[in-house]
């Protein structure tokens, strides 16, 4: 099943990521490791969008809504529970349940793809506006103040079962990488299951999938909710890396960035958007610190270049180039063998 990718390929990439994790402390400075933890959260967001858009064909322009819900749910739950482990699961569930409720009305209401993109973006912007208005002391959930424009503090990760044993930044980096790798392997496995393959078929032809007897609405809803849960998980590690969450997680810029990462990395792959998130984040960060070029302008130019010249994204383009080379080599070898056989037969 060539076009769905192979799970063994996913495991190879996961193996390389484990090597990177182990080598990172000796390659990067301590400050870069702390920054990497934030980027890991963002790359999980990109992974979730690659799953729902790239494999399911559902353009969710407001994926950052679920990312933000995850971040806020974690922060509020961790403050109230007094530990991070349960809060992580609450964050995933909050994002997935919110998506399931929204998705039910969208998919069962037969809202078209374009409107789905608009609705999800609108929801994200509503949450942005809503959270900015929660600055008073009356806006609190349990012990956690929502903090309005300035946001709320996100407690660091702790050892499971021991709320007072906080993890150090290096340990947090290891845990974040482990979560990213697990999320990547999970999504890589998911797209090779029957569920994942049916989602790909819905992307290819919704009507045909329906005529085969699959309830496409249910599959879309399932994929939408799973991807939202993954985005929520990304939100957790982002806010842990930044140590607080602000309404900016719901902003238009955040939603657009996720789309750019997926376009640049390649929408039909899972690893492409993850790599694109890391590369573009550090590129724009270094541009921002030099103050020579406007980082957003450069990002915009990159997006235009990719849409026009590399529409499939980096990873699928490189993979396609290797595939064509392999096919050409195979044809040349076949021709050579045929010539040799002919030569032997005649002479």
């Amino acid at each position: 099943m060539r076009l769905y990718g192979t799970f063994s390929g996913t495991l190879v990439v996961a193996g390389l990521a484990i090597i990177f994790t182990l080598l990172a402390p000796s390659i990067f400075e301590f400050f870069t490791i702390i920054t990497l933890t934030q980027v890991i959260g963002l790359s999980i967001l990109a992974l979730s969008l690659a799953l729902v858009w790239g494999f399911g064909g559902i353009l969710c322009f407001g994926q950052s809504a679920f990312f933000g819900i995850g971040a806020y749910a974690y922060s509020v739950a961790a403050v109230n529970i007094g530990g991070s482990t349960g809060a992580i699961f609450i964050a995933i569930l909050a994002a997935a349940i919110f998506a399931a409720i929204l998705g039910y009305f969208v998919f069962y209401g037969k809202v078209s793809d374009v409107y789905l993109a608009v609705i999800t973006l609108t929801v994200s912007l509503i949450l942005y506006s809503l959270m900015r208005r929660t600055s008073g002391p009356e806006y609190k959930i349990g012990k956690a103040l929502l903090g309005g424009f300035n946001g709320t503090g996100s407690p660091p990760l702790n050892v499971p079962g021991n709320g007072s044993a906080m993890l150090f930044p290096m340990q947090t980096f290891y845990v974040s990488m482990a979560v990213l790798i697990t999320a990547y392997v999970f999504t890589g496995w998911l797209v090779t299951t029957k569920f994942g393959r049916v989602c790909v078929s819905i992307r290819e032809n919704d009507v045909r999938t329906e005529l085969l007897g699959y309830d496409t609405r249910l599959y879309k809803l399932g994929l939408f909710s799973i991807s939202a849960g993954i985005a929520g998980l990304g939100g957790v590690f982002f806010c842990v890396g930044v140590t607080r969450v602000t309404p900016d997680v719901f902003s238009l810029g955040q939603s657009a960035l996720a789309i750019i990462w997926v376009i640049v990395g390649g929408r039909m792959t899972l690893i492409g958007p993850i790599l694109a998130t890391f590369v573009l984040y550090f590129l724009t960060s270094s541009l921002g610190s030099q103050q020579v070029f406007n980082a957003n302008l450069v990002l915009g130019i990159i997006l235009v270049i990719f849409v026009l010249l590399v529409p499939n994204g980096v990873v699928p383009t490189i993979a396609g180039w290797f595939e064509r080379r392999r096919t050409k080599r195979y044809i040349r070898q076949k021709e050579r063998r045929m010539k040799l056989r002919k030569h032997r037969a005649t002479g």
Binding site: M1, R2, V200, S201, E204, N205, R208, L212
Partner: peptide
């Protein structure tokens, strides 16, 4: 499913 192979179409 135009983007998939004939095998994948039959399998689905």
């Amino acid at each position: 499913f135009d983007g998939l192979s004939a095998y994948e179409n039959l399998w689905l």
